[in-house]
Amino acid sequence: MRPTTRLRTLGLCACAVTLAGVLAACDSGKNTADDAAATQPAASAPPTMAGSTEPADPDAREKAAVLAAYNRMTTEQAKAYRHASMTGTQLQRYATLDALGKIRLDLARMKKDGTVVRGHIGHDATVTALDLKASTPTATLSDCVDLSRYETYYTRAHTTIPLPTAQPRRYRATAKAERWDGRWMVTDIDTSGGTSC
């Protein structure tokens, strides 16, 4: 399998984690005179400053939906590459014909060469562009693919094929998605960039 094919076989699973901060108030143990004074409104008291938080992203829900569809697609893609076959996967639920065409080409080459993918391919994807006003809403994703636990296995010789020495163990891939009938689908996968991340 050629290096570019290996890159493509890596696929394009990303997980989004939201951290919430909690502010705790401390009781300073004031005496009753201070408590009484505290109940009187101060004429020149400065306005209370709420915690400075950035405004919520109005597109957060759609971005999460795009990432969920992409993550499901890469999960199903990994299943296909483990056996060099789409049988038993749900790739068609998450990828359109164009994206599936690239995956099928990879699987055909793998079957011909007698190779499968073993190990784990890491993904750290983000939505870099989102157009919800288009007649067909579109999204672009950037994915940092991690090959540190990836293996190509040669089934005929029962041996592992090492990655080329020049192959970055973490590299940037891109993907595109469209929303069809309220559901996001991956329409294109591009692993040819190969820049480190």
Rank of each mutant, 00 (worst) to 15 (best):
Met49Ala: 12
Asp143Pro: 05
Ala60Ser: 07
Ala20Ile: 10
Val66Met: 09
Gly88Leu: 08
Ala139Ile: 12
Ala50Thr: 11
Thr48Phe: 13
Ala37Phe: 09
Leu91His: 07
Gly51Arg: 07
Ser44Met: 02
Arg149Ser: 11
Ala108Ile: 04
Asp35Phe: 00
Ala60Arg: 08
Arg118Ser: 12
His83Met: 06
Ser135Cys: 04
Arg72Tyr: 08
Asp59Lys: 11
Leu147Gln: 03
Met110His: 01
Leu19Ser: 12
Thr96Gln: 13
Thr126His: 02
Gly101Lys: 07
Ala139Gln: 05
Cys144Phe: 02
Leu105Ile: 01
Thr39His: 06
Lys79Cys: 06
Thr155Met: 08
Ala64His: 00
Met86Ser: 09
Lys30Pro: 15
Ala45Lys: 07
Ala56Gly: 12
Lys79His: 02
Ser52His: 04
Ala78Phe: 10
Ala33Thr: 11
Ala129Asn: 11
Tyr153Cys: 06
Thr152Gln: 09
Thr136Tyr: 01
Lys102Arg: 13
Asp124Pro: 00
Ile103Trp: 04
Thr18Ser: 05
Ser135Asn: 09
Ser85Ile: 01
Leu67Ser: 03
Arg61Met: 07
Ser28Ile: 12
Ser85Thr: 11
Thr126Met: 09
Val22Tyr: 03
Thr115Met: 11
Val145Arg: 09
Asn71Ile: 00
Ala45Met: 04
Glu54Asn: 05
Thr115Tyr: 13
Leu19Phe: 05
Ala45Trp: 04
Ala65Gly: 03
Val145Asp: 05
Tyr94Arg: 02
Ala80Thr: 01
Tyr150Ile: 06
Gly114Ser: 09
Pro58Gln: 05
Gln77Ala: 09
